[in-house]
Design a binder for these strands. Structure first.
Lengths: 152, 152
DNA sequence: TCAGTATACGACCATTTCTGTCGGGATTTC
DNA sequence: GAAATCCCGACAGAAATGGTCGTATACTGA
């Protein structure tokens, strides 16, 4: 619970990998899959999703493959997760309206919606670029997170 | 994905309900289940878990039931979720060691671990008491979240 | 124009996780 | 002792997830 799906993980890993290889015009799904030992076909589907959502550019044919559609600094972890797993809500009673109206139940939803927003904010503040900076992303991160908290 | 299980939701709802009825010495699982339309037996198991983890006190027999083991202000959403769903990690590759060693894969884990901590911090900063304050928990929350971000 | 490499995408199955139920047992009160 | 209540393990159905397959389509280069 409160866990990223493997697909989202794979997606983040793939984007990170692409961000780390800016010199190559494109990398195939297989290239990335091999690099990480991820099932190639599965990763292919994930990359297709990311392409559909405008995070990647794809190119078929020989020497084709995928490349970031934008600068790694402008792609957030949130976007990636959202593209792969769809909109997320921390609460089980998903939408604002229906299911939970039955009972006066989800009085709990309102406070949790705030938590949800906070988490989304944190994920929005993390860029693919951040993922590639192995050492001491702490400073950047702290800064970003602080920003999020303040805007809540 | 990145969603609380229904069990965790139910647990939070139940604790909130208990926090809102401090006058009664104890409420049975059935009482709470009826109040929210939750399957009684399922909620029973959840309350038992919370009891085992020291968040509730239970009492068998007539007029028995459950009551908060501590002040609602000192019970965090994090504790509840942890008690019900076990330790959580945002990453799929759960433990620090095994599975991901196979490949040099999870270079992504380190940054996400930080995100994980941030989220855990947010959840730790939310108390059951906060859940009961319907209007304007914003101030408290903002304060608490800010604190979390700074301690990251 | 043909062969090879790649993406695109829908359908499908296997596995795991989650939800909810059942049944029997123990504890307390009246 | 009977009723209410907690305790707890086992299990079945449902849903989500992970992964595979097959086929169609697009591009490249010889």
């Amino acid at each position: 619970m409160l866990k990223l799906t493997k697909k989202a993980d794979y997606g983040l890993m793939a984007l990170k990998y692409l961000a780390e290889h800016p010199e190559t015009p494109a990398l195939s799904a297989k290239d990335v899959a091999d690099a990480y030992g991820i099932p190639a076909q599965l990763l292919a589907k994930i990359l297709q999703l990311l392409t559909r959502n405008g995070l990647l550019r794809s190119h078929a044919g020989m020497n084709g493959g995928y490349a970031l559609a934008r600068d790694a600094r402008t792609i957030s972890a949130y976007e990636v997760i959202h593209a792969i797993d769809g909109p997320f809500f921390i609460t089980s009673c998903t939408k604002g309206a229906k299911s939970c109206e039955l009972t006066p139940s989800c009085t709990i939803k309102e406070p949790l919606a705030r938590v949800n927003d906070t988490i989304a904010g944190v994920l929005k503040s993390i860029s693919i670029q951040d993922l590639t900076e192995h050492e001491q992303p702490a400073a950047r991160a702290r800064e970003a997170h602080g920003l999020v908290a303040l805007t809540l």
